[in-house]
């Protein structure tokens, strides 16, 4: 049982750290929630199942001065690598407990499948089947049907960096070409269709900034230029151009840094494909500079550096 082994792993490092970050049961069976453990007896409330979707590494930069143990999935570990590249954490202050992951659950997709009925119970089978019990009866779903889109093309199911690994390493069986297939497909649309698509999507934005707050790489936090009055980048007006601008700020500040953990899309209450813009930029960064965020701790984000002769950038003619 992974949960039990995870508890043992955390108990093993508990004396070395100030706080341990893991998951606990949320307000109902369908939700897990992050937990901060400072007392050894708290370890028992820890859980592990496909509902543990959150990227716990988001808390690391704010805990930079503390010693922290953190539970990470493959996708979350890329965030840690990116933090290391940008010097946002001290690696020696973090104990990484990695869990190879077969995919997590999108709560929204489960709720959609069960017509938003209150969930009584949820159980997980060996081969990725999920049994959801509601007042209206039982329904069996497949993990592959209710996982977030990022899991469908996951290339790194086993954490890239870890100090202790709980469970056996898994290698990805998904083709690397599938990762950006949707982006390439979107680029087949005409300019007008694309503009219309984004206008429609961004028009739904309620500027709650949940995407920004959930984003582990959005490190400006309280001094985000979307809210500062000086400089006054965007106003509080609820117009499309202000919403569009907000999403551009988010995307461009993450250019070549986004580790595609999908937290922004998970947090978005309006179901806007927030991650798509950043993934498009990542695809370009890969083509131009052969760079993939969150893979090599020694790498440098492409926009933080330069080459005197850029062979891949051709001069543009009018």
């Amino acid at each position: 049982m992974i949960s039990q082994r995870l508890r043992e792993a955390i108990a093993g490092v508990f004396s070395e750290v100030d706080v341990a970050l893991a998951y606990q049961q949320g307000f109902d069976k369908l939700h897990a929630t992050p937990c901060f453990m400072t007392m050894p007896e708290e370890i028992n409330k820890l859980i592990w199942n496909p509902l543990c979707v959150h990227n716990l590494t988001s808390y690391l930069p704010s805990l930079k001065k503390k010693k922290v143990a953190v539970v990470v999935k493959g996708c979350d570990s890329r965030t840690i690598v990116q933090f290391m590249q940008e010097g946002l954490i001290n690696r020696e202050n973090v104990v990484i407990i990695g869990i190879p992951c077969n995919g997590v659950i999108s709560v929204n997709k489960v709720l959609h499948e069960t017509n938003h009925e209150p969930i009584e119970d949820i159980t997980f089978g060996e081969n990725g089947e999920i049994t959801v019990k509601t007042l209206k009866g039982e329904k069996t779903l497949l993990l592959s049907d209710v996982c977030p889109d990022k899991c469908k093309t996951c290339q790194y199911p086993t954490p890239i960096v870890y100090d202790r690994l709980v469970g056996d390493p898994i290698t990805s069986d998904k083709s690397p070409d599938s990762v950006y297939a949707d982006i390439k497909e979107f680029e087949n649309k005409t300019l007008e269709e694309r503009l219309q698509y984004w206008e429609q999507e961004f028009d739904r934005c309620i500027r709650c900034y949940a995407c920004r707050n959930a984003c582990p790489m959005c490190i400006c936090q309280d001094s985000c230029i979307a809210e500062t009055r000086d400089p006054h980048w965007i106003s509080q007006r609820a117009t499309l151009s202000e919403k569009f601008m907000f999403h551009m700020i988010h995307a461009l500040h993450l250019a070549g840094r986004c580790v595609e953990c999908g937290e922004c899309e998970r947090a978005c209450p309006m179901g806007i494909p927030v991650n798509k813009l950043k993934r498009k930029i990542n695809l370009d960064m890969k083509e131009l500079f052969g760079y993939e965020p969150g893979i090599d701790p020694e790498d440098k984000p492409p926009l933080y550096t330069f080459k005197v002769d850029e062979v891949t950038i051709k001069e543009h003619k009018i």
Partner: peptide, 15 residues
């Protein structure tokens, strides 16, 4: 140069 090239490629994606 790197930033502007990145933007140049992003603009058509936005329409």
């Amino acid at each position: 140069r790197r930033r502007l090239e990145m933007l140049k490629r992003l603009l058509p994606f936005l329409g």
